[in-house]
Simulated assay, not measured.
Amino acid sequence: MFNRNLKIAVQKAGRLSEATVELLKKCDIGFDNGHGKLRSLAFNFPLEMLFLRDDDIPQYVEDGVADCGIVGENVLAEAESDLMIVERLGFGRCRLSIAVPRGFRYRNIENLAGKRIATSYPLLLGRFLKERGVFADVHTISGSVEIAPGVGLSDAICDLVSSGSTLFTNGLEEVETVMNSEAVLVVRSDLSRPLKKIFESLTFRIKAVSEARKNKYILLNAPNERLGEIRNLIPGMKSPTVMPLAQEGWSSIHSVIADDDHWPVVEKLKASGAEGILVISIDQMIR
């Protein structure tokens, strides 16, 4: 059987591009992603990157030009793609939202009936409005959607929002969330057995990196009389590692804690007598 590299479609520029490249490199996959490159072969893994416009990624994977891809969930939904989502990657989080100019008297979605709404996501917006029985004039545009109300093209917009700073700068305020989105790993269903094996290996690495991002490695010194109390604060994946120190009456504890709440845990550890606390980022984590 003819063997070839697994082809992955990734965004060549934009909000997901840098994070995707960082993810693959944290998977210890080395490649050259120099400016303007459209494709790149990995040095140490049977993988070929295709650098594409985000809107093109679902179609390239569906057509078999690429075997898998990393794309925003919003793009996948707008394309009405049936591709399988294998992993939610935890970066590129945003929301597709409706925003109106400040001063627009907005109480509920019905206030948009008969209004002009500019968007790059007509399918998702149209479905959202239809489900709520609101009939509006949807203008499909690309590029800087947020300027549309200011130049008289629309009464409102529907666009991706992360921090909201762009809306604020353009005198807009968010009023409705159409959908939440993040980067996802997708794959076509008809991979050959050799390609499926490569994809499984890639997915294994990606999951290890994604899991590591959610956790921190913690090391600390603790007085032996407080070991029980401190161990209960950091249970770890199974239980923390406890090793005696050269200084009598003290032990070193190593464990893993969730990144989201590590500061409250560190404060409790300090209050319980722990010293020399180190909190370290993890590159890969395999459960």
Rank of each mutant, 00 (worst) to 15 (best):
G273S: 02
G236S: 07
L245G: 06
Y60N: 11
S17V: 02
P122N: 05
A77P: 04
E275Q: 13
K12D: 10
S255H: 02
F43V: 11
I109Q: 06
K130Y: 10
P244G: 00
L160Y: 06
R39H: 08
G150Q: 13
I234K: 08
I206V: 15
G164T: 07
E146G: 00
R95V: 07
A99R: 00
G150K: 11
M179C: 14
E146C: 08
T241A: 15
S97M: 02
S281I: 09
R132H: 10
I277R: 00
L160R: 00
E174H: 03
V75D: 10
I206H: 02
A148E: 05
V145F: 01
A258T: 08
Y217T: 03
S192Y: 05
I57P: 09
E131H: 06
E225H: 15
S239A: 12
R15N: 13
I198W: 06
R102Q: 14
E48K: 11
D32V: 10
V209N: 02
D55A: 13
N108D: 15
D67N: 06
N3L: 15
R213D: 12
R88M: 09
E176C: 01
M49H: 05
L123E: 07
G69Q: 06
G228W: 00
G92N: 07
K268H: 03
V61T: 10
D261E: 11
I85T: 15
E173H: 03
F199L: 12
A183Y: 03
V75M: 12
G14Y: 00
T166H: 09
T241E: 13
G36W: 00
T166A: 14
E131L: 10
A19L: 03
N33C: 10
D32H: 04
Y60M: 11
L123F: 14
H254A: 15
K115F: 05
A246I: 14
R4S: 14
I282L: 13
V71T: 06
V61C: 02
Q247M: 12
K214I: 07
F128V: 05
V256G: 07
N170E: 10
R15C: 08
A79P: 03
R213W: 01
F128M: 02
R4A: 14
N111R: 08
V209S: 01
F204T: 09
R102E: 14
Q247S: 12
G36F: 02
Y60R: 12
Y217H: 13
G126E: 02
D259P: 07
I286H: 12
E80S: 13
S154F: 01
L220P: 07
R39N: 10
S144C: 00
N221A: 11
I109W: 09
L219C: 05
L227S: 01
N74E: 11
K12E: 12
T177A: 09
F91W: 00
S252D: 04
F204Y: 14
A19S: 15
F168A: 15
L125G: 00
N108Q: 01
S192G: 07
G150Y: 09
R53T: 09
A246E: 14
D63A: 13
V21I: 15
S272M: 00
D32K: 08
S154N: 08
D54Q: 13
E48Y: 04
S163K: 06
V10Q: 01
V256L: 11
V75F: 10
A222Y: 07
V100L: 00
A136H: 02
E22K: 14
G249D: 04
R116Q: 09
R188L: 07
R93W: 03
A222H: 05
N224E: 15
E176R: 10
H262T: 07
E78R: 05
L219Q: 09
N5I: 06
G236L: 02
